[in-house]
């Protein structure tokens, strides 16, 4: 036993180098600014004060909004799909879950580009509309396009944990509920849904974290002016070059995520 514990060492080194040290660096960057010629680094809260300007607040607000909408859509669609999948025999369930995960084998950029060719002004969807004699619609570079991209990318992260909690549920609990006089709807409400809450919570956390911090999808489907927190961070590091401000935004984003996780977990424990 003691011998096998040594196998964790490479991981500890890896995690230290690539996770802990960068996190500390972000923390240091967030609270410092370029100093003068005598002292090259100085401590400051200015980076955080800058975030409070209305332009940046609205970026956070957009991200939060898009994240919550994506979570809600994924929750409804994902629960429905997970529930339907769980009705099949175990063999069929394995195949269906495989089908759910297959899109993830394709590169995310490719999948997003596929949406561009479907949604763009002379794309697949508009060609179809014109063919049917309907007015073409401008779909690209809208909230709709971004949310559609996010939902399609992250839906499996909602389906899988919910399906796991549904499929491992003791079937005799459902029978007990019928036996005690609950019809199908009451059984779902009082037993099945309640017992699947851990899966729902996991799904919500994963989809929320992935969508609030995404930047490729909003950039491609939302257009160059579309700003979510991920895009803001990217621009600070890549084009503006203000690493201190970028780090402060990352820090705030991480804090929002932590709070969101804590709130969701609370929902898990106090379900009655």
């Amino acid at each position: 036993m003691r011998f096998y514990k040594n196998f964790i060492l490479p991981y500890l080194v890896w995690a230290g180098l690539l996770i802990v040290i960068p996190l500390i660096m972000i923390l240091i960057y967030a609270f410092t600014a370029d100093g003068n010629s005598v002292l090259t680094v100085s401590f400051t809260f200015d980076n955080f004060k800058n975030i409070l300007s209305s332009a940046y607040i609205s970026v956070f607000w957009t991200s939060l909004k898009i994240g919550i909408i994506t979570v809600l859509i994924c929750l409804v669609l994902g629960y429905l799909m997970a529930y339907l999948i769980a009705q099949f025999s175990e063999k069929v369930q394995t195949i269906l879950i495989l089908l759910v995960t297959i899109p993830m084998w394709i590169n995310m950029l490719l999948r997003t580009y596929a949406w561009i060719s479907i949604l763009s002004d002379n794309g697949l969807l508009n060609s179809l509309l014109t063919f049917l004699g309907l007015e073409p619609m401008s779909l690209m570079y809208t909230d709709f396009a971004v949310i559609l991209g996010l939902v399609c990318d992250f839906l499996p992260f909602m389906i899988i944990p919910i399906h796991t909690s549904l499929s491992k549920m003791d079937k005799s609990l459902i029978e007990a509920s019928y036996d005690l006089g609950a019809n199908k709807f009451q059984t779902f409400k009082r037993v099945i849904f309640k017992l699947s809450i851990p899966g729902v919570v996991n799904g919500i956390i994963m989809v929320f974290l992935l969508s609030i911090s995404s930047f490729v999808i909003p950039k491609l489907l939302g257009g160059g002016n579309y700003m979510m927190v991920g895009n803001l961070i990217e621009s600070q590091f890549i084009s503006v070059g203000d690493w201190n401000f970028g780090s402060a935004i990352s820090f705030v984003l991480a804090a929002i995520m932590l709070v969101a996780i804590k709130i969701t977990e609370k929902f898990d424990k106090t379900d009655e």
Partner: peptide, 20 residues
């Protein structure tokens, strides 16, 4: 007749108490 409309109740082999 579905089970929820029958005047019988069951004690299950592995109790099947609702854990929540």
């Amino acid at each position: 007749v579905p089970p929820y409309k029958r005047e019988v109740n069951t004690v299950f082999q592995k109790y099947a108490l609702f854990p929540h």
